[in-house]
Computed example of a mutant assay.
Amino acid sequence: MKKLIFSLALILGVGSAFAQSNKVVTAWNLMKTEYNELDKAKVAIDEASVHPKTSMDPKTWYYRGLVYYKLYQSKDERFKNLDPDPLKQAYLSFAKAKEFDVTNRWKDDLLFNLTRVASDYFNRGGIEFEQKKFAQSVESFENVITIGKLPFINLLDTGAVYNAALAADEAGMKDKALDYYKKSAEYNYGGPEVYHYIAIIQMAKGDTAAGMASYEEGIKKYPNTSAQLYIAVINVFLGKKDLNSAFTYVEKAIEKDPTNVSLWQVYGSALQDRDRDNEAIDAYKKMIELEPNNFLGYYQVGSVYFNQGVGANDVANAIPLSDEAGYKAAVKVADDYFGQALPFFEKAYEIKKDDSDLLTGLKSLYYRFKNNEKVQEIQKQIDSLK
């Protein structure tokens, strides 16, 4: 009797296994384009994936991955809400299939499909980033990285590493961002900019020494394209009122990148801080030479002349009334400076008409030179901005 019961149980077990195997085949057929019954295919393959007889069969998980990948790709409204994240289920299914595929029967198919999934995750991560869904973007790019780490793939997507860093940074995951930025630097991805991001996070954590070391490392690694890093270091020194160090770095940076307009701007500002106004004017004029429509170049040259005029005017006002000749001579010096400022301010105004500081300076110059028509014109422009 015991033998008979065992035989019946065995027959029932074989029947059950056959039924579950049929569900795998059914799922395969239902997802074909000519049937396109992904909802039914999903039900069949999900049942097979949890049944003891088929749950460890790589074919089950491979087909499950295909079903869910088709759900992810489908534009059919009937299948839109069958799973909240079919791409993730496709990824997990293909990975599970590889785990059970000890004979490598499905190796090439799984490699192809996991590569497709990784590409889709990369694209999705970019879309999520643009939509400011930064935490989700991190997860998508991390999935790309994880897929690449699978032993039979073993391919690091350095773009995904860098993008994960950017997304984590925006999401406020600073430790994770720092780790990915450092990995990007290690793999020579991201150029000098990645060192800037590393340094910013380090300094925000209060580790200025580490931040400065990162800047130095980036400058050493990218000596000819690291103007941004030089500027960042210069700003750190300016913030500390260490003008000598700042000035040294500016000069080094210009040697490396003499056509960088931003460097000439910083250099001009550093020269002004050292009361070397004429050299500052030359630096700002270099900005104009490199970019003929550079607003700041014209504005800065005009500002230096304007400030020199203000200084000369103060000298004139300090001369005793009894010294009329001395007063007139001093006023002429001031007028010469103001006169030199005017054409640069006017050119800056042609380029940008809504800068309040420029408008104030330009109005005062027109007023000084008694050009009432221009005074009224500039005043109207000022009023229009209120």
Score class of each variant (00 low, 15 high):
A135E: 15
D108R: 07
Q136D: 15
K88H: 04
R78W: 01
R116G: 11
K132C: 07
L87C: 08
S93M: 05
W106E: 12
R124K: 13
S140N: 10
S93I: 03
N113I: 00
D101M: 01
D85A: 10
K132Q: 15
F79P: 03
R116S: 14
P84W: 06
L114T: 10
D76R: 10
A90C: 04
E139G: 03
F129C: 02
K98F: 07
N81F: 11
A118I: 02
F134E: 01
E99Q: 14
Q131C: 06
T103G: 08
Q131E: 15
D108E: 14
V102F: 06
K107H: 10
L111V: 09
F79D: 10
F141T: 03
N123K: 09
N143V: 09
Q131M: 13
N81W: 03
D108G: 05
T103S: 12
R78G: 06
N143Y: 04
F134M: 05
V102R: 13
F141S: 08
F129K: 00
G125S: 05
F141G: 09
E142V: 07
K80D: 11
F134G: 00
V138L: 06
G126D: 06
L87D: 09
G125T: 03
A95N: 05
L82N: 15
F122D: 08
K80C: 10
F112E: 15
V138N: 05
Y121L: 11
S137V: 01
K96W: 04
S93R: 02
I127A: 14
P86Q: 10
R105M: 09
G126C: 04
K75T: 14
G126H: 04
T103I: 13
K133T: 02
F112R: 15
D83P: 00
Q89L: 08
R116E: 12
K80N: 12
Q136Y: 00
G126P: 01
L111M: 12
